[in-house]
């Protein structure tokens, strides 16, 4: 009987201890930003491997998503004789939802999984312990620049996704299906609002940047230091990131609308 109580108590304590540990690690990483700001080399290196290396997949996907929006939008809008509004529809869908969300999902698959595997392998091959023994704090030297670069990269990537998507919608809508060029652009210009639409999209992608990069970095840092442990953590990164992004998207949309 007492064993049973003790067991519950122990699980509860373990849970809170683990949560506390996670929060603490996150705070330590964020605090370390103040130090790595003075080492732009480290951040630029990560911006390259996290951000620049994700650009191709983001641009190609954005282009296709934009083209699909053009097609589907045109087909629906034409029934109401509103095909002139195609530009607004494409732009709003991209800027408010698809840009931040799809970019974050692709980012988790491309950059997040790579981050987890990289950090996990560093752990498995004792490189992280090695850093500690060289009196170099891995939270500052490894985690912080990656998290920082991820947070900067995400909104930029989402912006690229949306921009390329708008262009894809233009190709299909205007060049292929014959929507008026002037209408496509001018309606978009008139009806996409900076505060309402652009800022909301940017807020979302910054939040997604923090969440997906943190999940990736955390999973790598805390993985079991074996090849199996690394591969499991990599999978977890993608799964948790996807769930977190979709869940948070609903929450943020509800809060900001």
């Amino acid at each position: 009987m007492f064993d049973w109580f003790a067991q519950i108590g122990k699980s509860a304590i373990d849970f809170w201890a683990r949560l506390g540990g996670e929060v603490l690690l996150f705070l330590q990483t964020v605090m370390a930003f103040s130090k790595i700001i003075f080492r732009p080399g480290l951040i630029i290196q990560q911006l390259f491997s996290i951000g620049v290396r994700s650009m191709l997949i983001i641009i190609v996907s954005g282009f296709f998503v934009g083209m699909v929006l053009g097609l589907q939008g045109y087909n629906t809008l034409i029934d109401f004789g509103a095909e002139e509004s195609l530009g607004v529809m494409v732009a709003l869908s991209l800027v408010r939802e698809l840009g931040p969300v799809v970019t974050a999902l692709l980012f988790a698959g491309r950059a997040g999984s790579a981050l987890t595997a990289e950090i996990g392998l560093m752990k498995a091959t004792e490189q992280l312990s090695g850093l500690e023994m060289m009196a170099v704090n891995p939270v500052e030297r490894i985690l912080a620049p990656r998290l920082f670069a991820g947070i900067i990269s995400m909104p930029l990537l989402a912006a690229m996704f949306s921009a390329v998507g708008v262009f894809g919608g233009y190709l299909v809508g205007v060049d292929l299906l014959g929507v008026d060029t002037g209408a496509y652009w001018s309606q978009m210009q008139a009806r996409v609002d900076f505060d309402q639409d652009i800022v909301q999209g940017v807020i979302k992608s910054v939040v997604f940047g923090v969440v997906t990069t943190w999940i990736a970095v955390y999973e790598g840092y805390t993985c079991l230091p074996t090849s199996e442990g690394v591969s499991r953590s990599t999978t977890r990164t993608v799964v948790y990131s996807a769930l977190a992004v979709l869940g948070l998207d609903f929450l943020l949309t509800a809060l900001m609308l």
Binding site: L121, T125, G130, E132, M134, A135
Partner: peptide
């Protein structure tokens, strides 16, 4: 502790070189 570690070197079994 980080200060003290500068006075210690450690060779890990795998070498632990930064790859």
């Amino acid at each position: 502790l980080y200060e003290v570690r500068k006075k210690m070197g450690m060779l890990f079994q795998s070498g632990a070189l930064l790859t």
